[in-house]
Design a protein around this nucleic acid. Sequence first.
DNA 1: CAAGCGGGATAACCTATGATACAAACGCTA
DNA 2: TAGCGTTTGTATCATAGGTTATCCCGCTTG
Lengths: 236, 236
Amino acid sequence: MTSRRARSANESASLRETLIAAGLDPQLADLLDRMPHRTLDIDARRPFREPGAPRDEVIFVRSGILSKFKTDTSGRRQIVALRFPGEGILPRRGIAQFGIQAIVRSEVMVGKAQDFEPLLDANPELRRFFWRLLQRNEAIGYEWLVNCGRRDSTARVAHLLCETAARMHGGDEHLVNPFTQQQIADITGQTSVNVNRVLADMERQGLIRRKGRDIEFNDWNEMRRVASFQPAYLEA
Amino acid sequence: MTSRRARSANESASLRETLIAAGLDPQLADLLDRMPHRTLDIDARRPFREPGAPRDEVIFVRSGILSKFKTDTSGRRQIVALRFPGEGILPRRGIAQFGIQAIVRSEVMVGKAQDFEPLLDANPELRRFFWRLLQRNEAIGYEWLVNCGRRDSTARVAHLLCETAARMHGGDEHLVNPFTQQQIADITGQTSVNVNRVLADMERQGLIRRKGRDIEFNDWNEMRRVASFQPAYLEA
DNA sequence: CAAGCGGGATAACCTATGATACAAACGCTA
DNA sequence: TAGCGTTTGTATCATAGGTTATCCCGCTTG
């Protein structure tokens, strides 16, 4: 039942490095790195934060992927956001509306709001950095809304794949697909059965090739067209 | 439980008053009020900002309602966010991904990013105010995503009506409905034909009463239940 | 007053996707 | 190597909601 374990020492980049890779000034990254915190390993599929919990913690992803989600009364789940390495979940007043769960096994750093907020106040440049990330998160949410509200199921899946490829490795033709079909369904507002259909179709039509869970795009331009994917919204 | 009652859509107030009503400290509201700006009237339905325009302006709503939207290649429109009086659209680097259009005739105040940002830097409390609004916008977007991805069309419409009633007049049983059925469709990711069906059904089932465009909730609790509406996400 | 336009209502038809069920493949771990 | 839970792959059937096409009403504008 332990969703958290001690992390093994040599697994991945330090928070400092991931933040610098995400565009933060090294000196400011140091500040965050030295902030009191604990580091956790989170298993995929085990709830990490439940809705209703206090939001008095900062969470940074060091490796893996976190998701924010809500489960409807009828048990249908919607994932509303993903956080990749270098990204995080900022504290807020009140209690959480959304649960947090890892998509794949992830290492996260967890600090206290009362340690984090003074850093923001003391370092305007740091606050501007997170300000931009907040705006980016807002924009990504809006893009997902367009996806969910106005595109057919193929485009929805294709869009998620494009975005993920862009966020994970800056737009490679090869996507180390981290998602189960159920997770793709939870993100794109469908059922896993239909996601399966869609992926099979995309392969049959020669849009992608699959080896196990991995996906290769046969033609990025064609993928982008099918998905109406315009990556400008991902810029900070 | 009407703690802060916003003005109805066509009542005009100074920006200062609307911001104070939105929870901003009067002295800080003064700062914004004295910022160089122009005031505009925007007709409903006429595009105000097109996607691709620079985002170097701050926009505040004084009266009316603004929407952010994107139109798909096939001409289907998705509205991704609404801004009510006292709310605004903050500047960002780069160019706009979304267009802006008024839902009803609106008065807006438009200032320049280079006048606005120094105010934020000089007044930490002001920046924290907008920081919270950014987080609120993010949360509203996520709620819409759950709505769009996981609820049936009746719940989607009901949820929008609940949210609008809460944002416009702090949760009145009577909603001065500002939307055309087409706009409700654009917000909830449906067609206007279906919105019409849904509204007729809701009336037939005794959930609401309608006089022209106005809507009265026969039973708030029942509406909330149908919509799975939990207003906590609207708190700043 | 007529003409035109936006908004609402309704009907007929159709299809993408949901629901359900079960089997096969995969990957732990005992 | 067996056993079990998870993930993937299909098939069958049902339906919510999309599409298209009118028609009507109330405003605005000429």
